[in-house]
Design a binder for these strands. Sequence first.
DNA 1: TGATAACCGAGACGGTACGTCACGTCTTTAA
DNA 2: TTAAAGACGTGACGTACCGTCTCGGTTATCA
Lengths: 186, 186, 186, 186
Amino acid sequence: MEAVLTRTLEELATSGLEGLSVERIARSAKVNKTSVYRRWPTREALVAAALEGVLEGMAAQVPDTGSLEGDLLGLLEPVAALLGQPLGRAVLRAAMAESSASSVAALAARKLEDQARSPVRAMIARAKARGEWRVGVNGQLVLGALVGAVIHRAMLEHAPLSKRWLRSLVDFSLHGVSASRRRLKN
Amino acid sequence: MEAVLTRTLEELATSGLEGLSVERIARSAKVNKTSVYRRWPTREALVAAALEGVLEGMAAQVPDTGSLEGDLLGLLEPVAALLGQPLGRAVLRAAMAESSASSVAALAARKLEDQARSPVRAMIARAKARGEWRVGVNGQLVLGALVGAVIHRAMLEHAPLSKRWLRSLVDFSLHGVSASRRRLKN
Amino acid sequence: MEAVLTRTLEELATSGLEGLSVERIARSAKVNKTSVYRRWPTREALVAAALEGVLEGMAAQVPDTGSLEGDLLGLLEPVAALLGQPLGRAVLRAAMAESSASSVAALAARKLEDQARSPVRAMIARAKARGEWRVGVNGQLVLGALVGAVIHRAMLEHAPLSKRWLRSLVDFSLHGVSASRRRLKN
Amino acid sequence: MEAVLTRTLEELATSGLEGLSVERIARSAKVNKTSVYRRWPTREALVAAALEGVLEGMAAQVPDTGSLEGDLLGLLEPVAALLGQPLGRAVLRAAMAESSASSVAALAARKLEDQARSPVRAMIARAKARGEWRVGVNGQLVLGALVGAVIHRAMLEHAPLSKRWLRSLVDFSLHGVSASRRRLKN
DNA sequence: TGATAACCGAGACGGTACGTCACGTCTTTAA
DNA sequence: TTAAAGACGTGACGTACCGTCTCGGTTATCA
């Protein structure tokens, strides 16, 4: 009976949120359409239920590596891994749907961001303690830029999210465009 | 007869790429469905044609303000303005569709990025000449991060893209998280 | 608990035998559907039970008015009154259902006709004794024609079953088309 | 494509008006459900269309046999033949549906009665000319009673509509219950 | 000028999917 | 242990679009 959720995830990965068909899911899960509608009255509810399990296992875990650079890499790698899969991209697309129409947006976005919140706060606090985080820099802004960069590369440039590229990204986020290490050392 | 394209843009803005219906467009443009299909055999072709005009007028123009900070702001403001509108968000969503399925992705992404390429190159060259661009920093990476940050804020955080926020973003991109301004001034 | 039967009669009157829904009846009687099915395994059984009470009270009572004309009028008036109400028409329709499908047909038809049998016999006997009933005329045929005439008028002509019309009908049944009173008096 | 109408008549005969399923008809006529709905937007319209042909061929033809008795027999025989078939009974049931809900009622009833009107008028005129029709007897009343009697026997008594029975019925309608032939012959 | 092509409106068709209602059967829970 | 509650497979409802097709009727172009 809950092969439905499995099939939903597959459809979500292959056809996207809009392309997904309740009728097709029900058929291929050998369950009656009306039974699906009984439990999950809307398409959104169905997708939300299917994602719940997946998102649960994604509890953002920011490792304490001893340096901001390492922490950021550890934070971004799961994100990159997620967007490296069709399902991950489909979830992101769903989360970007016009908000009113989609409670999936709410669910996915909130769930992910909420889970990330406190580990990220802790990470920033550690960085500040080590003097690696310049006073006045907004954490949300930085994280948004980093995640946004990954999204941009994965979904618009269609370029691979290699570890090398992630390192370059983190490096940029630490030092910016203008700041020269040489100058700093002087 | 080409009220069709206008209506297509409106549908795109209100219903998104997937929610848009050829039949509805034809009806509301007082044109026969078959006539629409004759000219634009697929939904993608129709949307692509409708977007062509819009994207044309968006020729990325990076103003030469004399500083990298100003140039970046001038570059991001139109992006922010675009994502501030439903149509702009719809176009972005279309551009993020699973590539194979959608020539709109190709069109929109290529068109926008292509138009931006040379002005951006020029901007970077100017910045390098002024010593504002650290050697070894990848321009594409930086731009991706900036645009990605805007996308993240507009489509996931649903937060306003104020000028103030854009300035913070540019500031972060220039100096990074770790670099201390004080030290730089030494 | 037996608001169910009340509701069934109402549904029967408004929606007819076929249009009546067990689920709706159960819901509006604030009873579980399965409880209804337990007691009355089929729709027919439910309707039959609901009608039982109603039909009981309809015991055909043919008054002894002293004349065949009066007796027939007294017999037809309740029939007309019945077919003047939606419920009565619905019952008649049920009784006319393709017999195999509907035990309601059996119930309603048998019940009504059975109840009528002996009073009608008595009425005919009285009429014969008074010389008002021509030898060789089949009572069942006459009664069928009279009731059939009322049915035809109520359900096909959609014309009112006024007392005046009933009197004309009885008059016709007594004297026929051809028989002239004048001639008789000669 | 119009096997649909054939199948509709069959379904009407076997399942009745309410039991008939558009989906089943479409399937067994090897036509798409939506195509059926396009042409005949409602179940009623479909049934009406299917009946049209049948009813056309039923143009009531009252033969001029030279006597009222013969004419009435000639009129009732087709009616009896119709109600002897499942389809005929189904049509009658449809015509008796609660009028508002069913344009089939309108169609069937009107069509049949309309077709009958003028031949019946002629028949009555002939009978009057021959002195077989008592002055003041309402033709509609008589016809209603005759047809009603047939309906009653076919649909409630479930008794056969033999020629013998029809003759008895006509005989009753001519002379009534009370009129004595003997007296008439005097 | 008169044939020919290109385009359009109109509308039917086979399909897939939608979301809903009711059916009657079946377990699972609670009085 | 009888009843309620509720889940389930099944079938049908009527509707929206999909993309394809054929049929006539205009225009415009070119011979």
